[in-house]
Simulated scan of single mutants.
Amino acid sequence: MQFSLFQPLPYFAPELPTGWPQSPSKFAPRYGLDSVRHNLEIIEAADEGGFDYIAVAEHHYAARQLCPSPTLAAALISQRVKNAKLAILGVDLPLHNPVQVAEELAMLDTFSGGNLLVGLFRGTPNEYATYGHNPGESKAMFEEGVELLLSAWSEPEPFGWEGVHYRHRMVSIWPQPVQRPRPPVLVSGNSPASAEFAAKHRLKIGLSFMPVEFIPKAVTGYHEAAERHGWKPGPEDVLWRGFAHVAETDEKAKEVAKKYNFGDLHGILAPTERQAPSFLSVVSEAMEAGFGGAFSGGGGAVQTPTPQPILGSPDTVVERLRAVQEAGVGIADLILSSDALPPEVVLEAVNLMCKDVIPAFR
């Protein structure tokens, strides 16, 4: 199994803003600069210690993730890492022009020496309050956008595109990606429909925050869909994302998680009192448009329990990750940071991962 450090690029400060969106007045340049330094220290430790990927993702208006532009963040990180590959996991594609995204990612693939893994997603529901996009159209926009982006990377001659949501008289991007036929691309596999879409286009899948007991059903559904489309995925085509904290003992890991509320998945979606009415309206529309829900392996998506973070000593974490691997996962994309967790605690956990956990899988 390979390992990816998903670094959300949190804002480390003594007093953290709450709710979403977060007030710009709460941003202190001093702590912003400190946060950049701390995040780069964590990334460099992971790179030197044996992580296979360093991953970032697009999110807006929040201290938890200072990364509205994952392509820009990955470009900066590429100048600091020497061993790991870059993973953008991912771009919220319906919020952007897919041709421009294809150009920027191709440029990054070229400048990084062909070391890029690309994740394309619809984004969390709150993102549709960011730029005023219609969440009800996001699924159709996403699927057409993926097809347009893949065509921009594969068509040998300039071409036009007349779709439902995107129209371009001319598409002819330079540079092309250096990875041929294209960089590996990953999309969500958390529902039967998304797994079917991935299989149709021979893409990898990501299972975000899915409890381990649900993973085999999702993987089986993905494999069955791929078989219908004439190919067979391997473990390297399945990525699982979850929170993890490694400490010297199980007790210490649990104490840290409790003290800093580590692994809280929904905090970023909690609106301020002022923003609650309009925000909840957008989220409601987004959920009706098909966001959320995990793979049931049957005829539709079902809501799964909130996943618990992987916590414990190195031995315990190895045991927990073995279960993830045996469920069919080839890449573990682990979140070891949060805005509330002190950077020195994160760095200690990263070092323990590199020293005692990752070697157990080599």
Results as ranks from 00 to 15, higher is better:
Arg80Leu: 11
Ala84Arg: 03
Leu89Gly: 14
Ile88Pro: 09
Leu93Trp: 08
Gly90Pro: 09
Asn83Leu: 00
Asn83Ser: 14
Val91Asp: 02
Ala84Gln: 01
Asn97Gly: 04
Val81Gly: 02
Arg80Thr: 08
Leu93Gln: 10
Val91Glu: 01
Leu86Tyr: 12
Ile77Gly: 05
Gly90Ala: 13
Ala87Ser: 09
Ser78Gly: 12
Leu93Pro: 07
Leu76Val: 10
Asn97Cys: 12
Asn83Gln: 12
Val91Met: 14
Leu95Tyr: 08
Val91Tyr: 10
Ser78Thr: 08
Val99Lys: 00
Ile88Arg: 03
Ala75His: 02
Lys85Asn: 12
Leu93Lys: 06
Asn97Asp: 15
Gln79His: 11
Ile77His: 08
His96Ile: 07
His96Asp: 10
Leu93Asn: 11
Leu89Met: 15
Lys85Met: 12
Val99Arg: 01
Leu72Gln: 13
Ala74Leu: 14
Leu86Arg: 10
Pro98Phe: 05
Asn97Phe: 03
Thr71Arg: 08
Leu95Thr: 06
Leu72His: 08
Asp92Phe: 12
Asn97Lys: 10
Leu95Asp: 04
Pro70Tyr: 11
Pro70Trp: 11
Ile77Tyr: 12
Gln79Leu: 12
Leu89Ser: 13
Lys82Gln: 14
Pro98His: 03
Pro94Ile: 02
Gly90Ile: 09
Lys85Arg: 15
Ala84Lys: 07
Lys85Thr: 00
Lys82Met: 06
Ile88Val: 15
Pro94Trp: 02
Gly90Ser: 14
Val91Arg: 10
Ser69Ala: 15
Ala73Val: 13
Ile77Met: 05
Asn97Ile: 03
Asn97His: 07
Ser78Tyr: 06
Gly90Tyr: 09
Lys82Cys: 04
Ser69Ile: 00
Ala74Val: 10
Leu89Asp: 08
His96Cys: 02
Ser78Trp: 05
Pro70Asn: 10
Ala75Leu: 08
Pro94Ala: 05
Lys82His: 11
Leu95Trp: 11
Leu76Asn: 10
Ala74Pro: 04
Val91Ile: 15
Asn97Glu: 03
Pro98Ile: 01
Ala84Ile: 07
Pro94Asp: 04
Ala84Gly: 04
Ser78Glu: 13
Val81Lys: 01
His96Thr: 05
Leu76Glu: 13
Ala84His: 01
Ala75Gln: 10
Ala84Pro: 05
Val99Ala: 01
Ala73Trp: 00
Ser78Ala: 14
Leu95His: 13
Lys85Ser: 13
Ala73Leu: 12
Ile77Asn: 08
His96Phe: 13
Pro98Gln: 00
Asp92His: 13
Pro94Cys: 07
Pro94Asn: 06
Leu72Cys: 02
